[in-house]
Design a protein around this nucleic acid. Structure first.
Lengths: 233, 233
DNA sequence: TGAATAGTGTCTTTCAGACAATATTCT
DNA sequence: AGAATATTGTCTGAAAGACACTATTCA
């Protein structure tokens, strides 16, 4: 039996029926808070409830493709995604055994407003990994989505200084103040301005554009760009 | 249609056939090097080649259970596991679409020797995330196992100071020298002794046992234990 | 006593936090 | 000029690296 014969026979045989999905925690910052986007589920189970956007992965679709499709089909938003953890508890979905790959995405604050009308998702504040409703009480979420969001926030914090992923929270050009506000929202506390400036400017992730902010009521700040670097740190 | 009716109908319908596996990078340290355990594949595809131990996840089996089963069935080793990333490229397995959840485990150096005879896996040195054969040339691995190991090492390094997972590399009681050797093997460079000592002793992860090493050829070091703490940092 | 390593002290450098001074732009 | 914020400078304390010293145990 050649290897290709074997593969053909193998592929035809039955495999444990486990479905694979991707769920996406779409983050943004507004003011001092971190926010996460939730959609109202269109279908059972948990129809009508607020949840993270997610889809079943198609047979010929990479995981990050599926995550981006979840964002665009369920939330009406296009953004790059980053995987943070897989969730596979046996009873996490009542329908059948589902393993969900958890992804996160980030949306610059001003895009939240501009897509606001068309987007089918609403942003909720997240403090210390807990989603709050408009009255700032903890929100109950279906499946294990509460745990997913907490894990996503923990991963976000852990990797804040190791990766350049934080720049997805910002437009192409931004000021150091805006970058500091994003760091503060993610870490849930204020950071020291001079130390933050020198640390970030020395980090090698930033590139000065030479341009200044416009439409400010005060002294405009210099604008920076995220530099293209080889991955992580 | 009630929700339970719906679920019944739903579960019966066909789902995209995607298999789910777990693969485990079993690490240990020997001397100054980090090591990873590879097995010789018993079955096609890639029969006979060195690869990470892995199994298909069973329908009623949690992901970490499956990872521990991979370790014990394929490598003959029992150890706790930690998930680091999911791998789901469409063509990563020639048989069929497989999404693999990547786990890591760690074995104290002295257990490597003691299980050596019974274990069906052999340790290979890893430098900068690259597996080397006995001649210290880079080893070619099947599937995406090379990428998996590199990602596992990167995750290990990133989380070295954020989690207490590093203590899985050590027996229940250990000296600060041994702990430092493990840090050095993982980071791939030497670390400063006084700084390391004070940092670790102040970290709150350690608990003095009051006991000393035995069977040393020289002054015995004090032994410490990993303190039970609420998860991560 | 000598070998070997444990554990500590000191000096220096680096870096973050606190606070404040100076600079720039708009109204 | 006054308001508001950007940007920089200075001081201080915490922590890390380099280096070397003292302490302890075994052979």
């Amino acid at each position: 039996m050649t290897e290709s014969d074997f593969i053909a026979a193998y592929a035809a045989s039955a495999y444990p029926a486990i479905a694979v999905t991707t769920d996406v925690a779409l983050f943004s910052t507004s003011g001092r808070d971190l926010g996460v986007g939730l959609i109202q589920r269109a279908e059972a189970p948990e129809q009508g409830r607020l949840a993270l956007p997610g889809v079943f992965v198609r047979p010929k679709e990479d995981l990050d493709r599926a995550a981006m499709r979840a964002l665009s089909e369920k939330a009406g938003i296009d953004a790059p995604v980053r995987q943070f953890k897989a969730f596979g508890a046996v009873d996490r979905d009542p329908r059948l055994r589902v393993v969900s790959i958890g992804f996160m995405a980030a949306l610059p604050a001003e895009r939240v407003d501009s897509v606001g009308a068309s987007a089918r998702c609403k942003m909720f504040a997240v403090r210390d990994g807990v989603v709050l409703d408009d009255g700032l009480a903890p929100l109950t979420l279906p499946f294990d989505h509460r745990e997913m969001i907490a894990d996503a926030v923990a991963d976000l914090r852990r990797n804040l200084d190791h990766t350049n992923w934080v720049f997805n929270f910002l437009p192409r050009e931004f000021s150091l103040r805006e970058l500091q506000r994003v760091h503060e929202a993610i870490r849930g506390r204020t950071v020291n301005k001079p130390a933050f400036r020198t640390r970030l400017l020395d980090s090698g992730w930033l590139e000065a554009t030479g341009r200044l902010e416009t439409n400010t009521k005060f002294r405009p700040a210099e604008l920076y760009r995220a530099r293209e670097v080889r991955g992580e740190r």
